[in-house]
């Protein structure tokens, strides 16, 4: 084995190895997408209950991923969950956008859905969403269903629309 052949093989090996690393970072780990996210702007959404929402969960609007949940914290004064959402710069949302927590499938991951309103003023970096809708909790849903059945008799109306917990936002006000 000449030195030249060894050099050649090692060169091929290192190239394949680096290609594999690149593959893992880009194709599997979606490194580029992440970078786009990092360049977006941040808005805050306050929820009474975030359910199983996790950091890095997607933020979708009309089913399209527009950003990610950056962090989740609890506001010690109002006892609300504060989710910071990083939204891609390409997407602008009106100030009266409603944020809601949905579940993909019955047991799937949870994500934040944004539904734009009719306002003409757009959200800026650091703004807080006024209207939110908390995560749907299976236990509450079941108990509501049972109570309404008990109250209304056999022809209860509760089934179809799972009475959402009322939008929390405006009562607690905006805190800078």
């Amino acid at each position: 084995m000449t030195q030249r052949a060894i050099d050649l093989w090692v060169g091929i090996f290192v190239a394949i190895g680096l290609a594999a690393l690149l593959f893992l970072a880009l194709k599997v780990g979606n490194l580029l997408k992440f970078n786009e996210d990092a360049h977006g702007y941040v808005i805050e959404a306050r929820f009474d209950n975030i359910g199983n929402l996790k950091p890095r969960a997607p933020v979708r609007s009309a089913g399209v991923v527009v950003g990610r949940v950056e962090s989740i914290a609890l506001d010690g004064k109002t006892f609300e969950a504060v989710a910071r959402l990083r939204i891609d710069n390409r997407f602008q949302f009106t100030r009266d956008t409603i944020a809601a927590i949905y579940t993909s499938g019955l047991l799937g991951e949870q994500f934040v859905g944004l539904e734009a309103g009719g306002d003409t003023v757009m959200l800026k970096d650091g703004d807080t969403l006024r209207k939110t809708q908390s995560a749907m909790q299976l236990e509450k849903l079941v108990s509501q269903f049972l109570f309404s059945r008990a109250a209304d008799g056999p022809s209860g109306p509760a089934g179809a629309t799972p009475a959402p917990t009322p939008p929390s936002s405006s009562s607690s006000g905006v805190k800078p």
């Binding site: 893992l24 979606n30 490194l31 992440f34």
Partner: peptide, 11 residues
């Protein structure tokens, strides 16, 4: 896969 795998956290 791309939605769930984070390049920093996982890769």
């Amino acid at each position: 896969m791309q939605a769930a795998v984070d390049w920093r956290h996982d890769v």
